[in-house]
């Protein structure tokens, strides 16, 4: 690809809106009823992070990391790659994200901000995480069919959004590195859906913007 400057975004959009929507329809069909399990695990992540104990947050990030591994293998390699050769390059990034979140959980580097001392950032983080779990509902509200909706832990958009919400609750600087790949995917999916002319193209970037706000919110150290 020696002449990158002469390519436009649409040059890399290799598929039609119909094909992209059916990609998720088939994914949902093939994985049913895994959606119920993944949503249950997503709800568990929310509860564990709201509880906020060291043990519960570690488990939450282990679940999030596993979700990325599933998305990388089953979706990007198993599904997306069949219509976009970029899928084989994105899948390892999803694997790295999964490994990173699992590593955070295993090492216990999952200290959270306090809901009382960082009320705004905490509220936004929980809100973005919840939006990731409710992603199918949001998509349906913007015109996508439920059969072609995306579910946390199975497809990238809700997994990225939910991860960003969880990462926004982290206290340490590791949150900045952890947010990179999910944020990049939110941009990629927004560009993809926008180029396809889909009405739901703004969901991920809006939630990304909120997550960035919470992630960038200053952390203060409170000593008693």
């Amino acid at each position: 690809m020696g002449d990158w400057s002469s390519y436009s975004l649409s040059d890399f959009l290799l598929f039609s809106p119909q094909v992209y929507e059916r990609l998720f329809v088939l994914h949902n069909q093939d994985f049913w009823p895994a959606q119920l399990v993944s949503l249950g695990l997503g709800a568990a992540v929310l509860i564990l992070l709201v509880r906020g104990t060291p043990a519960s947050t570690r488990i939450a990030f282990l679940i999030l990391g596993a979700a990325w591994l599933v998305v990388g293998g089953a979706f990007f390699l198993g599904r997306y790659q069949t219509i976009n050769w970029l899928g084989s390059y994105i899948a390892p990034l999803a694997g790295i994200q999964g490994a990173l979140l699992i590593l955070l959980g295993l090492r216990g580097a999952t200290g959270l901000i306090s809901s009382t001392n960082h009320r705004v950032a905490h509220t936004i983080g929980v809100g973005v995480l919840t939006s990731g779990l409710l992603y199918p509902v949001i998509e349906v509200a913007t015109g996508t069919s439920m059969r072609g909706a995306q579910f946390f832990g199975l497809t990238p958009d809700p997994t990225a959004v939910a991860s960003l919400g969880a990462i926004a609750l982290l206290n340490g600087r590791v949150r900045l590195v952890s947010a990179l790949i999910p944020a990049m995917w939110c941009v990629v999916t927004a560009l993809t859906l926008s180029t396809l002319g889909r009405s739901d193209f703004a969901i991920a970037p809006v939630l990304l913007a909120l997550a960035i706000l919470a992630i960038a919110w200053p952390r203060t150290t409170h000593t008693s």
Binding site: F15, Q18, R22, I83
Partner: peptide, 13 residues
């Protein structure tokens, strides 16, 4: 065949 026949392994398409 640009875009039009890129249908993955979707049997219907």
């Amino acid at each position: 065949s640009w875009i039009t026949f890129n249908v993955g392994n979707d049997p219907k398409l």
